[in-house]
Write a protein that binds this DNA or RNA. Structure first.
Lengths: 351, 351
DNA sequence: CTGAAAGCGCTTACAG
DNA sequence: CTGAAAGCGCTTACAG
């Protein structure tokens, strides 16, 4: 910005009042008479005045900004979560500062330093994890931290988690109930706790059920990795008849490889369950049964916590993913009443 | 933020220098001796000091913030563009303030007012359009405006456009060359100039070619609308054998309806061309020929313009979409050498 | 209810 | 190269 914007001083002069009055006019609850208020509002409107949030943030020690720190923000699940968060923040009168990171710790640290330098009221981590020392600096500065789908915790922070392991276990039960006999779990090499938990729950339940199972990890979490995983698993001599994939994005890759490269019918020859319920899971070409991550709920609860009184004790929030039943899961003998209450009908709304 | 963060004063005291010295230490090009610089850096590191950008923005009249104003940010194309823009901004030392809007003019105006109140160095519009009066306020305040895919212009702003009509014309030539005889163009009801231009170019060329054609508009730009458009067009007695769809997202809906509901083979019974080259266009299940919007180029050029000297004359930038040839387009007699130079091989990289 | 004054954390001429 | 001082635009006790 070159030129100076119109300031409270300009408005005060035009309205014939003090700058303090102008400030009060835009401060909810400040004492000001209806008459001067009207005069000021008129002058402000005429001049196109907007309170300078840089200055007010400086004074009030509250910027109104919240940093959203994430990598791969163009990915379906991430962009849906980001959208939900920005909207929830706006409704709460705050604004989102989106900071892109890559997989390096370094970029996460840089992101958080930027957040600190803008004195954001909070930082919400969708990927990565702040170093403990830095997170303590944040805490000292009165900045709030929200960790979504992270496993470690930090003092004074809110951790939002999904019941991942339980979903893995339910996947096994569903597949077994559908008559599948050779199960597989497919995941990426990403070292995130949520993916590992989903895998762990699955393996645990498969072991418990005494059924034939296998686990495979591929590259980064992506459609391409899904293709690789599918190609590997589905060309084995003992081909699995069911795959639980830890993210929908990879499940789409598996589905496409199965159908278009290997000519397998879904669900007749391969049952598939994903995780996230991204928009594409509801598309006709995938029709993927999956566990929905309720992004609106995650966003709403994260933002609500921000206006809660600070407390050094870390808060923890566990969110239940909801099973969304679609066509990718064979329903041969679908008699497990235990899950029927949470089975919802197809929900193909894009975020 | 409750507590006060550590300030330059604290650092100055610890290092035994003046606050001015601390400020110089973090101002590129300011004159400071190597020795005091080192002392200050050490003290700053020890205290976890970060320059307060609220204060420095206030003083230097440059917040380092850029507002990104957009609706439907979880949509594939939008999220890819948003990702490219946030990254380009970060590389240029700026940070993105993402403001979500809905379809109303009111929300666009509110978004821009928020941007002004944070004194963002610029506002980039991916959707919607600022009212002329407000955009003048921005200009007066020295704030830069970038309009992506908008048709109107505003004084002092950069307008980035895609050669939309030309793509529509090329689609006709490609489809005719592929041996298609009954063409259709499918678009949404969205009143955006880019979609209308794509449609217009198509109709113009189809008329010129003297070929059988039809045009259909559906609801909002979405996968679901694509399905509706596909169902409508493909169940007509005179079923089109080729559809140019103004966005990939809708094209995916058409492809799925064609294949999964109507049992049509692509490209044998239906050739399909989309626009955008979203990640899904490269997925096996779609394998969609499309015109790629080079989001990285759009982002890079938009951001580069921001550090250009301001000028009241509106700037205009026309970007050529690149044809990405994939399997959804029949190649019966593919002899149009005119286009071959821009035909690239399959490019299925997700952003 | 209202204004004068102090102060938030910074940058930047101005002297030295 | 360095410090004291002024000033960016705001908010908030403090008097009246």
């Amino acid at each position: 910005m070159r030129k100076n914007a119109v300031s409270a001083k300009d408005v005060a002069e035009l309205a014939g009042v003090s700058r303090a009055a102008v400030s009060r006019c835009f401060t909810p609850g400040a004492s000001i008479s209806a008459e001067t208020r009207a005069r000021i509002l008129k002058a402000a409107d005429q001049l196109g005045y907007q309170v300078n949030r840089l200055a007010s943030g400086l004074i009030r020690n509250e910027s109104g900004l919240v940093a959203l720190i994430a990598s791969e923000i163009a990915t379906p699940y991430r962009s849906e979560l980001l959208s939900a968060l920005t909207q929830a923040l706006q409704q709460a009168g705050k604004l989102a500062l989106v900071i892109n990171t890559d997989r390096s710790d370094d970029s996460v640290e840089r992101a958080l330093r930027q957040a600190i330098s803008y004195r954001t009221d909070a930082a919400i981590f969708l990927s990565g994890m702040p170093a403990r020392s830095l997170s303590e600096t944040c805490l000292r500065n009165g900045m709030r931290l929200v960790l979504i789908n992270r496993d470690e915790e930090r003092p004074g922070s809110l951790r939002v988690r999904i019941a991942d392991a339980e979903a893995g276990r339910r996947a096994v039960a569903l597949l077994v109930a559908a008559g599948c006999r050779r199960l597989a779990v497919a995941t990426s090499s990403a070292d995130t706790p949520s993916l590992k938990e989903r895998e762990r729950g699955f393996i645990e339940a498969a072991r418990g059920a005494g059924i034939d199972w296998t686990a495979l990890r591929g590259g980064p979490t992506s459609y391409q990795t899904g293709q690789d995983l599918g190609m590997d698993l589905l060309t084995r001599p003992e081909r699995p008849d069911a795959i639980f994939c830890t993210t929908d994005l990879m499940a789409c890759g598996i589905a496409d490889v199965a159908r278009w490269r290997l000519g397998l019918a879904i669900p007749q020859q391969l049952s598939l369950i994903g995780f996230d319920d991204i928009a594409q899971a509801g598309w006709d070409g995938y029709d993927l049964s999956t566990f929905r991550q309720p992004v609106d709920e995650i966003a709403a609860k994260s933002v609500a916590w921000l206006s809660t009184v600070a407390d050094d004790h870390p808060a923890d929030l566990m969110i239940e993913p909801r099973l969304v039943m679609r066509g990718s899961l064979a329903r041969k003998n679908h008699t497990v009443s235990r899950y029927s209450s949470t089975v919802s009908s197809s929900d193909s709304s894009a975020m």
